[in-house]
Amino acid sequence: MAWVLEARDIHKSYGHVRSLQGASLEVGEGEVVALIGDNGAGKSTLTKCLSGVVPVDSGEIRVDGRPAAFRNAQDAREHGIETVYQDLALAVDLNAVQNIYLGREIMAPGLRGRLGFLDGRAMLERTQASFRELGVNVPDIRSAVANFSGGQRQGVAVARALMWARRVVFMDEPTAALGVAQTRNVLNLIRKVSERGVSVVLISHSMPDVMAVADRIVVLRQGRTVARFRAGEVRSDDLVAAMTGSLEVEGAAA
């Protein structure tokens, strides 16, 4: 498989704390790759490195087979990589359209745009089209996000990431604190994202969620990649064993 995103032998330390000690990750086009590990395994740090939020100390990042240097989040975005963080990073006082286009507003054509006016209609129509395609349902697209449920907010955050992602979307604990129905909706969103050819890296502690949507599973422990599995060829017990160190299988089928 040709990888759209590769991370090889990534190291990252914060003072004396070595968060990553040779972590690796490969993501193919349209794949859902689950990144799992116990607390402190390095999942969040690796996500931040591959989202451009923090620089790596050493190692290599490649996009479409070519070396890439992410100095900041904008560099990652320019390579088509977006992230949905666990706190969603939504401006809850703004409506869904404003959140989708925050910092990326469409200016009105002609003189009005040069005077600083926005093209509200274009942004509204594109947001509505994206929500329809993804099956995101909100009570009122012009209502403040503060009025939405947790699942509806998650849908807005995913739609925002997908609006701009061309290659990969990282999703950090997207079903945390959601009910059964809301979790099902988010997992359906993940499937729809991958069906569009955009890869998803799912960071999750929920083994049922991982087994439901992942094509492959990568396990981190103590800052290292210790196991790789194909989702259809592994049991939840094996994943837990790899996370805790009672099963060492690095080099398993990728």
Rank of each mutant, 00 (worst) to 15 (best):
residue 23 A to F: 01
residue 20 L to Y: 09
residue 60 E to G: 13
residue 109 P to Q: 03
residue 227 A to R: 01
residue 15 G to K: 06
residue 243 M to R: 01
residue 122 A to T: 02
residue 137 N to I: 13
residue 147 N to H: 04
residue 62 R to L: 13
residue 27 V to Q: 01
residue 141 I to H: 06
residue 147 N to R: 10
residue 45 T to A: 11
residue 82 E to S: 11
residue 101 Y to S: 13
residue 172 D to Y: 00
residue 77 R to W: 14
residue 117 F to D: 07
residue 122 A to Q: 14
residue 143 S to R: 06
residue 162 L to Y: 05
residue 178 L to M: 07
residue 6 E to R: 13
residue 229 F to Q: 02
residue 185 N to Q: 10
residue 98 Q to W: 00
residue 190 I to K: 04
residue 248 E to W: 15
residue 35 L to N: 10
residue 147 N to K: 10
residue 233 E to N: 12
residue 233 E to C: 10
residue 136 V to Q: 11
residue 86 Q to A: 10
residue 188 N to E: 15
residue 138 V to R: 02
residue 77 R to C: 12
residue 1 M to V: 12
residue 12 K to M: 12
residue 127 T to F: 13
residue 129 A to D: 15
residue 238 D to P: 08
residue 104 R to D: 05
residue 121 R to Q: 13
residue 243 M to S: 01
residue 195 E to G: 15
residue 61 I to P: 01
residue 238 D to W: 08
residue 201 V to K: 01
residue 130 S to E: 11
residue 59 G to Q: 12
residue 216 R to C: 08
residue 148 F to M: 11
residue 75 D to M: 10
residue 172 D to L: 08
residue 10 I to M: 09
residue 248 E to N: 15
residue 243 M to H: 02
residue 234 V to N: 04
residue 208 P to T: 15
residue 125 E to I: 11
residue 136 V to W: 11
residue 230 R to D: 01
residue 21 Q to G: 12
residue 178 L to A: 04
residue 110 G to P: 03
residue 179 G to Y: 04
residue 121 R to N: 14
residue 186 V to A: 07
residue 46 L to T: 14
residue 23 A to V: 06
residue 247 L to Y: 02
residue 111 L to T: 12
residue 125 E to N: 14
residue 249 V to W: 01
residue 193 V to A: 03
residue 180 V to R: 10
residue 175 T to L: 11
residue 154 Q to W: 05
residue 54 V to R: 03
residue 105 E to G: 04
residue 27 V to Y: 02
residue 251 G to E: 08
residue 179 G to F: 07
residue 180 V to H: 06
residue 207 M to V: 14
residue 84 V to M: 10
residue 17 V to S: 13
residue 3 W to F: 08
residue 97 V to R: 01
residue 130 S to K: 10
residue 39 N to F: 13
residue 234 V to D: 00
residue 129 A to Y: 03
residue 132 R to D: 10
residue 202 L to G: 07
residue 120 G to F: 02
residue 120 G to T: 12
residue 149 S to D: 04
residue 138 V to Y: 01
residue 96 A to T: 05
residue 208 P to F: 12
residue 50 L to I: 11
residue 175 T to W: 01
residue 52 G to F: 05
residue 201 V to W: 00
residue 148 F to K: 03
residue 21 Q to A: 15
residue 82 E to W: 06
residue 245 G to N: 15
residue 18 R to D: 15
residue 181 A to P: 00
residue 238 D to F: 12
residue 171 M to C: 08
residue 103 G to L: 07
residue 68 A to W: 06
residue 132 R to M: 10
residue 24 S to W: 02
residue 136 V to C: 07
residue 156 V to N: 04
residue 198 V to C: 01
residue 35 L to F: 13
residue 219 V to P: 05
residue 244 T to D: 14
residue 26 E to R: 11
residue 200 V to T: 09
residue 233 E to F: 02
residue 126 R to Y: 05
residue 29 E to V: 05
residue 202 L to K: 04
residue 154 Q to I: 07
residue 142 R to H: 05
residue 72 N to K: 11
residue 173 E to T: 08
residue 156 V to E: 04
residue 174 P to F: 02
residue 124 L to E: 14
residue 231 A to L: 04
residue 215 D to T: 05
residue 247 L to M: 14
residue 197 G to H: 08
residue 38 D to W: 03
residue 127 T to G: 05
